[in-house]
């Protein structure tokens, strides 16, 4: 779960991409290796690229399968299963038209999911970065005890807590509210660990300089430190956004009224054996992936590097 800091590259170096090491490696290859060797390694590289292209295709197959299914009759799809072909004789845009003209709940759920995701991301990032700063920059009593509890937090199955939490939410009169959906996840252990790691790379002199200038401790965090942690925020925003957008089990327990459902719960309700909503199920499932995909495409580099940096905590 950890690496001693000496093994881990400074985070900012890692976030700026892996070009650095690659240039070094290629340079070495050019100077040291003979021609025959290089030809052999080009052949090997081509083989590997082919292997990985095949893997990539395999990974993308399910997406293709559901994409082509959005043009077919939903009832037929549910009865006969997904495959890769398009039957052009029966293909139509009916499902897409139904999705966008539907007076029902789909875009209501879509809107709910957006609200919940935005709220959760903003609050989680605010609290987690705040807490991580406390861990990274100060020495205080109970620090190591608290820190171990962050790690333990990561290894308690949430599923085990959901029943008492459900009772607790009812006792607090919070059932069927977004407050209940969001609150339990605000102290997000992985996010705290990530921010702590990132903040430890920031020179303490900045904090000292702030103190000399008479800025309050909280002011130092907000005015001097936060502007330096933008990349960390980008990475964690996507990670938390993804988790919140796709969260299913807890919202399923916490929410009751259909007009408050989030997308995954709503989609799940379309999956009834007697449902006649199958056209919405297929096209709605496909469409629900699009916001996260766009987010991923936009911030891909931060995201990939963020995931990896969060994995090895020093």
């Amino acid at each position: 779960m950890t690496a001693s800091s000496s093994q881990v590259k400074p985070l900012d170096a890692r976030l700026s991409g892996d070009e650095v090491t690659e240039v070094g490696k290629n340079g070495r290859q050019m100077s040291d290796e003979g021609r025959a060797h290089r030809r052999r390694s080009i052949g090997r590289t081509a083989l590997l690229v082919a292997l990985f292209a095949a893997l990539a295709a395999l990974v993308l197959i399910p997406f293709w399968a559901i994409f082509v299914a959005t043009f077919q009759d939903g009832n037929m799809i549910v009865r006969y299963g997904l495959n890769l072909g398009i039957d052009f004789a029966t293909a139509s845009f009916d499902n897409w038209v139904a999705l966008f003209t539907d007076s029902g709940s789909y875009f209501r759920w879509f809107f709910n999911s957006t609200v919940v995701t935005l709220l959760q991301v903003v609050l989680t990032l605010a609290i987690s970065s705040f807490v991580a700063y406390g861990f990274a920059m100060y020495e205080f009593r109970f620090k190591s005890a608290l820190f171990v509890s962050v790690i333990l937090l990561m290894s308690v199955p949430f599923e085990m807590l959901m029943l008492p939490l459900y009772i607790q939410i009812n006792d607090m009169q919070l059932q069927d509210t977004y407050t209940a959906v969001i609150l339990p996840f605000l102290a997000h252990a992985v996010t705290i660990m990530f921010f702590r790691q990132y903040l430890r790379g920031i020179p303490k002199e900045i904090v000292e300089a702030g103190r000399l200038d008479g800025v309050s401790e909280i002011g130092i965090f907000f005015r001097l430190i936060l502007p330096l942690t933008k990349p960390a925020f980008a990475a964690m925003a996507i990670l938390n956004g993804m988790g919140s957008w796709n969260n299913f089990l807890w919202p399923l327990l916490a929410l009751r009224s259909p007009d408050k459902y989030t997308l995954p719960i709503g989609l799940n309700t379309l999956l009834t054996p007697y449902g006649n909503n199958y056209e919405l199920l297929i096209v709605g499932s496909f469409f629900s992936m699009i916001p996260i995909f766009i987010l991923f495409m936009l911030f891909q580099r931060f995201f990939i590097e963020g995931m990896t940096a969060g994995a090895v905590k020093g």
Binding site: L55, A56, A69, I77, V78, L82, F286
Partner: peptide, 21 residues
């Protein structure tokens, strides 16, 4: 990126797709 894309999907959507596959 391509290998990561499946992790972006929710269990609900992944479940629906694989159930039908």
């Amino acid at each position: 990126s391509v290998m990561f894309i499946p992790a972006l999907t929710s269990v609900v959507v992944a479940g629906i797709v694989f159930r039908l596959i």
